[in-house]
Design a protein around this nucleic acid. Structure first.
Lengths: 180, 180
DNA sequence: ACCTTACATGTAACTGTTGACATGTCAGTA
DNA sequence: TACTGACATGTCAACAGTTACATGTAAGGT
């Protein structure tokens, strides 16, 4: 149940409407960290408002409501982020695929590994461009969010790519050394 | 819904009982890739057996049933692993925490980052020891599974640690450069 | 004989999430 | 004026996953 904290965190950086929050979850946040659709977000915002952790700071056109964290909400967020990282539920399909590679014959495994290496390398290259738009921008606030995220994603991609290359090399060496 | 494929993959490496599969999910697989308890595994095994993708290869003591993949199951697994990686559901609390760091004041963010850097460094050191037990073991089969997993986990930890150190450095530089 | 621990499998209620459905506003344009 | 697309929020049924409950066997120690 991290969704309330995710919302609290986003609203702590700047007040937003449910619709805007939905958009954020479609970007890097939902891509790397936590995914949520508007059908989860709107009810959760109402719950948070009821508990007094957020409040409607502005009502705009088309019935839009902009939410902002309250002091209680900011305190709850800080509490959560500074508390010991509890055990976490992992559910990562790409990683699962990597784990299951051993179940394939070496030739098939190599095909998959090469695809992984290519895709992650391409993604890393793309992210590097994004990062270079403003390489020395501030790390806190709305832009800093993107900076941290971009750098994290970049390093993730590079790590997976390098792992895939390492695995390919070992697998090739092994296959040629003792062919079945 | 990757659980059936995870089970198929594990059984493709070697036949196991539901109990043994449960144990595997408590190790690295559940730690890095996909987590599942016995209450999901047993019903799923029954479903897979009904669809003919696995079969009971042996019945042992205490009512234990050892499952093995059928040809159909092996084909389904290969299909899934070689097919284009569909979009995946991300749900990763540690990463979410990193994303939300920007919502904290720099001093608090530094505390969290230092903890992350220390923890991931410790985990990396531990994993490096595990890996060195058999650094040149085979990559396929039951042992190779562990080798790939260990290397992947190691590189993940190191990547996160390096990212945290990078973020700490930038944050410190920024804080001292223009203190609020 | 009794107790404890690990082995081994299962059901059912509850909770959380998603997908389909639903409604309405506002701006631009044909 | 009518249409289209983006904006904006919402409900509800279906489904997935977890927790708590439940049962029983085998091995080893006291």
């Amino acid at each position: 149940m991290s969704l309330p904290h995710a919302l609290l965190g986003l609203l702590a950086v700047q007040p937003r409407s449910g619709y805007e929050l939905t958009k954020v979850f479609e970007q890097d946040l939902g891509r790397y960290a936590w995914q949520a659709g508007h059908t989860s977000i709107y009810p959760e915002l109402n719950r948070l408002a009821e508990s007094g952790l957020v409040e409607v700071s502005h009502e705009g056109a088309r019935g839009s409501r902009t939410y902002a964290v309250t002091e209680a909400g900011r305190s709850e967020l800080r509490n959560w982020l500074l508390s010991p990282p509890r055990q976490t539920r992992v559910r990562n399909e790409p990683v699962l695929r990597m784990f299951l590679l051993s179940a394939l014959e070496p030739a098939d495994a190599l095909v998959v590994l090469r695809t992984i290496a290519e895709n992650t390398d391409a993604s890393a290259t793309e992210l590097r461009k994004v990062r270079e738009v403003d390489p020395e921008g501030p790390m806190t606030g709305a832009e800093g969010f993107g900076q941290l995220a971009a750098e994290y994603g970049l390093r993730q991609y590079e790590a997976v790519r390098d792992w895939a290359r390492w695995a390919i090399e070992r697998l090739e060496r092994e296959t040629s050394a003792r062919p079945s």
